[in-house]
Design a protein around this nucleic acid. Structure first.
Lengths: 213, 213
DNA sequence: TCGTCTATCTGACGGATTGTCAGAACTGAA
DNA sequence: TTCAGTTCTGACAATCCGTCAGATAGACGA
């Protein structure tokens, strides 16, 4: 059922699986180097050292390959989800837990940003299949954060004027966009650590109602 | 100096200016409809009813046209900057001012999101000229917010453990990404108003140190 | 009105990319 | 080695890219 298939639908074997993987890794590498807007099937095929026809055997176009890479992001991010769930379920969420989450997620962005950016872009551009992936990718973060907000609201530590989903979304937005600003920050004297500390505190405050003063 | 030029550098006249404008509007429209990844020069030329050669007379490629649209975003967003500056300079920043800012900026995203997304994408992908535009586009927001944070920190209402730039950046991140999640939010019962209220409160709290409880 | 000058636009071209076959090359099993 | 199934590719038509030289349109003076 979850077997990997070629574009004609047939299940593929070991050799083909390796070819497919080489195509994916090359796509990811070129995406990092030159961005998505002028990434051609030809570029990938040349770099892989295969005929363009080979590419089309596994993917409909470059976007389709990026889609496959996006699907893989869900598994790749799972350890961060797991860590977060483990931390947050053992009782009170501490600032240290927030720091660890922000730090690990920032590292994740540094490695996988090129793919994540296109996943978010295509979802933002209303492509339904990318939206589905974005949902699956975000869901564990959102669920955990929404629960934290609701819990803080129930115990009166956080105002109910905040919408739980929107609050979680805003924090996710910060986590997803700030790594992209890091270079600019560093040029102006804000270190990676300072950024992580700041986001961690904003996150902690928004989810628990702890004051920022 | 600031005259609009063709790709060969010559300053263009009235008729050409109209053609250039039609190309830009068409590019923006197609960008909204079908996204950026498979937007061809041919598509734009066909829609405009002109030869592809006419397109190349004004822009090097589709990305170059989107760049020109991005440059225009700076002027287009200026009224929001102005409103913000006017509100925030008359003394204490109120929650109402934050609400207005978030509301207007969300509307701005609803209209110009297609272009803004590519501007941010290309800047995130390290394209220097888009980075310059992103800086110019963000600078007034950042400057104003950073000043608010510093002021709140100086008067002891906000912890100095927050980095001012990173705090402002995090809020800008929320403003820039949340409009993209609105459809999903609405499907799950979070209205536009609830989203705006939430972001406004998070913004207000982060910039002034006011508690969220 | 007419011709002339200049700005603007385009047909047409060589070259590159896309996407699709039929068949070649490879692989493992017998 | 042969064979059957799998994987890969050369070659092709269609499309797109990017660039000219030359066609067209508009302004202006006679």
């Amino acid at each position: 059922m979850s077997d990997t298939t070629a574009t004609d639908g047939r299940v593929i074997g070991e050799r083909a699986l390796q070819t497919r993987r080489r195509i994916l890794e090359t796509t990811a590498a070129l995406l990092r180097e030159q961005g998505a807007l002028d990434l051609k099937v030809m570029d990938v095929a040349r770099e892989v050292g295969a005929s363009p026809a080979t590419f089309y055997q596994y993917f409909a176009d470059v976007e389709d390959a990026i889609f496959a890479l996006s699907v893989e992001m869900i598994e790749k991010v799972a350890p961060i989800h797991a860590q977060m769930a483990a931390d947050w379920n053992e009782g009170a969420t501490g600032l240290d837990h927030a720091r660890r989450l922000v730090s690990e997620y920032t590292d994740f962005w540094d490695v996988n940003g090129a793919v994540l950016r296109i996943m978010l872009l295509r979802a933002d551009e209303r492509d339904e299949r990318f939206r589905q992936i974005r949902r699956d990718y975000n869901a564990p973060f959102m669920t955990a954060m929404v629960a934290k907000v609701r819990s803080a609201q129930d115990s009166g530590r956080l105002t109910t004027a905040l919408d739980a989903e929107a609050t979680a979304g805003a924090m996710l937005a910060a986590l997803d966009r700030l790594p992209n600003y890091r270079e600019g920050f560093e040029k102006r004297g804000t270190s990676r650590e300072a950024m992580i500390e700041t986001v961690a505190r904003l996150l902690y405050s928004s989810l628990t109602g702890a004051p920022l003063s």
